[in-house]
Simulated scan of single mutants.
Amino acid sequence: MEHLKGISIFVEAVEAGGFSSAAERLHLTRSAVGKTIARLEQRLGVRLFNRTTRMQSLTEEGRFFYERCLRAVEEIRLGEAMLESGRRSVRGRLRVSMPVLFGRLCIAPVLEDLLDEHPELELDLSFNDRIVDLMEDGFDLAIRNGPLKDHPDLMARAVAHQRMTVCASPSYLERHGIPQTIADIPQHQGIVYRRGDYERTWIFPTPDDRWREVQPQTRLRLDDLAAILDAAVAGRGLAWLPCWLVRESVASGHLVQVLKYEQPNIFDAHAVWLRSPVMLPKIRLAIDTLAARLPAMMG
């Protein structure tokens, strides 16, 4: 059993990208992880990791050993999944990656309610706008917005439809007038999302099922949707944002939705998980719950 424990910690250290991250996932100290790996190396008679003061990387022998250990660990995980699928209760730790703002305002509140319903369930929620690798980063589930690329190792299910809207503050509309059609947008100041070299174009569907790209004039580019919302409330220009984000500001009168009669851009939010013959009950529960409860929050 000690040998199996050492192998599982070794696999976790590889998947987590280092001893410190593995220790955090396993609720151990970094020293305990390091000592376990050292004992495993001593028993095998090879060095599995190259160690520096900042990081650990696999040796050639370590890569060879990891590939074979992973097969064994995956079989154990599959066996656990098959056993767990026969239980009624949902238990264990569920690790979910999600976009920062959408996750904080929409996904997390839904998933956190599951803790009240399932006392043996644990949640580990990560808020990050980058696309994670579920296998390498150790996540059970990821929430991704927009179109997905085909991937042979992943499964996906749409859990919500997000509708975009153009809005502005009453003060801005008083000064600059209300746009009546999409063609009016280029004559207005807009607050544009930009991250790095990527600048988001405002996209609207056309009656013939194509897409029309429109861009307002802009003197303000931000890489955070919440900051764009704040700037719109302050009267800096038109903003193109998801309805779930602007709902409270519209209800309070701080923002006004315009172009209501134009067909909105609607895109899916997907739950994504690793392909497996058996789905863990905790993953199925999370996906089913999101699909059932998110639509009412989309605005």
Score class of each variant (00 low, 15 high):
216 P>D: 09
259 L>E: 05
281 P>L: 08
199 E>G: 03
269 A>R: 00
222 L>H: 01
245 L>E: 00
272 V>M: 06
255 L>M: 05
200 R>C: 10
263 Q>H: 09
199 E>F: 04
266 I>L: 06
207 P>Y: 04
257 Q>H: 03
242 P>E: 09
210 R>V: 09
223 D>K: 02
266 I>T: 14
198 Y>C: 05
228 I>M: 12
220 L>M: 13
234 A>H: 07
270 H>K: 06
211 W>E: 15
240 W>L: 05
262 E>I: 05
270 H>R: 06
221 R>H: 07
202 W>Y: 07
262 E>Y: 04
249 S>C: 07
263 Q>T: 14
273 W>L: 04
209 D>R: 14
269 A>T: 12
193 Y>T: 03
222 L>S: 03
201 T>G: 10
254 H>G: 01
222 L>N: 01
272 V>S: 01
271 A>F: 04
226 A>P: 00
267 F>Q: 04
268 D>H: 07
270 H>Y: 15
257 Q>T: 11
212 R>F: 06
203 I>M: 14
215 Q>N: 10
231 A>V: 02
198 Y>H: 13
223 D>T: 07
220 L>R: 06
221 R>F: 02
199 E>C: 10
239 A>E: 09
226 A>H: 09
238 L>D: 05
281 P>W: 09
225 L>F: 02
222 L>W: 04
210 R>Y: 08
254 H>K: 12
198 Y>L: 13
256 V>P: 00
215 Q>K: 12
261 Y>K: 14
277 P>M: 09
264 P>I: 05
226 A>Q: 11
200 R>Q: 15
279 M>F: 02
263 Q>E: 15
235 G>V: 08
260 K>E: 15
206 T>A: 10
274 L>F: 03
208 D>A: 13
254 H>Q: 13
273 W>A: 02
201 T>A: 15
237 G>C: 11
275 R>Q: 12
275 R>G: 04
263 Q>A: 14
260 K>N: 14
265 N>R: 11
243 C>Y: 02
265 N>D: 14
234 A>L: 13
232 A>C: 11
266 I>V: 15
202 W>H: 06
250 V>C: 08
220 L>D: 02
272 V>P: 03
201 T>D: 14
198 Y>P: 08
206 T>V: 12
213 E>M: 13
271 A>G: 02
232 A>D: 01
225 L>D: 09
208 D>Y: 12
223 D>G: 15
212 R>T: 11
227 A>G: 00
229 L>Q: 01
210 R>H: 13
250 V>N: 03
269 A>S: 15
197 D>V: 09
212 R>W: 10
243 C>A: 15
194 R>S: 14
252 S>L: 07
211 W>D: 14
270 H>N: 11
270 H>D: 06
230 D>P: 01
238 L>W: 07
194 R>W: 03
219 R>F: 13
195 R>P: 00
271 A>Y: 00
263 Q>M: 14
208 D>S: 12
235 G>I: 01
216 P>S: 10
208 D>P: 00
237 G>Q: 06
242 P>H: 01
230 D>N: 10
215 Q>E: 13
197 D>M: 11
217 Q>K: 15
200 R>H: 14
256 V>K: 05
279 M>G: 03
244 W>I: 01
256 V>W: 01
280 L>A: 13
206 T>C: 12
274 L>P: 00
267 F>V: 05
246 V>Y: 01
